[in-house]
Simulated scan of single mutants.
Amino acid sequence: MSTAAHSLSSNPWKQGAKDALPLLGGYIPVAVSFGLFSVQAGFGVLETILVSAFIYAGASQFLFVAMVVSGAPVWLVIVMTLLINSRHLVYGPNIAPYLQKDVRWLPLMHLLTDQIFALTLTRMPHMTPSDRLRWYVSAGVIAWLSWILGTALGAIAGDELIERWPLISEVLPFALPALFLVMVLPRCTDRRWTITMVMATTTAMLLKLFGFPNIAIPAAAICGALAYYAIQVRPTDKEERS
């Protein structure tokens, strides 16, 4: 095992916490925004916190609250929530090679978010299989608790925060997308990843511009995945000679 791999795996609990800390800068502001939005829509403080604890799905939570308040049928609420989260069908196969055949992974998938997925692809290849579960639990729980904490803050004190600092309401929606972009861009080191990012980003922007924001995220994920797998990676001259 390389020195880099050893240093990452020497204390997976500590490494997971260290990797998750930057996520708080994106999670808490957006969670505060959700907490404020949910309470203003008519949900109670406890209900709002429970939504973040058990649904824990970012954009899907905003859609869930909006559809429930508008009186949408339960089946439509469920379908739309699942549609937005359909990107996890792409996440699963990509991280599966790094997971052991352990039933404990099944409930822990509740902690999987876009940002944890990006961290997983970066960290797990450099860890021993026995350390991956501990790293994932550490990073995932910290991210999850920060989302719940931010939601509670927004639900309880969101109005006061916005009243005192009005600019916050303009900045909050950009915190999480900006964080995810910063985490994903370093992977765009070759033609395949760059085209994938461009395809996904362009798809999302066009759908939003043409008035289809609810399907922008899943459609972008699907288009990006198709682009990634459609592009054939040519072996280098060294690989061909070997």
Rank of each mutant, 00 (worst) to 15 (best):
M1Y: 03
T3D: 08
L8P: 10
K14Y: 06
G16H: 02
D19R: 05
L23R: 03
L24V: 09
L24A: 06
I28N: 06
P29Y: 02
V30T: 05
V32L: 15
S33C: 04
F34V: 04
G35P: 11
S38I: 11
V39S: 06
Q40W: 03
A41L: 10
G42Q: 14
G44C: 01
Y56F: 15
Q61Y: 06
Q61S: 11
F64T: 08
F64W: 05
A66E: 14
P73A: 07
P73N: 01
V77A: 05
L83W: 02
S86F: 11
L89E: 03
P93A: 09
N94W: 13
I95M: 11
K101Y: 12
K101L: 05
R104N: 10
L108E: 01
L108H: 02
L112C: 08
T113R: 04
F117H: 13
F117T: 02
F117I: 13
A118H: 06
T128I: 05
R132C: 05
R134C: 01
Y136F: 15
Y136Q: 04
S138M: 10
S146N: 02
T151D: 15
T151H: 02
E160V: 12
I162Q: 05
L167W: 07
S169T: 10
P173W: 01
A175K: 00
L176E: 00
P177F: 12
P177A: 11
L179S: 03
T194L: 14
T194Y: 00
T196L: 09
T196G: 10
A204C: 07
G211W: 13
P218W: 13
A219P: 08
L226M: 12
L226W: 13
E240R: 11
S242G: 14
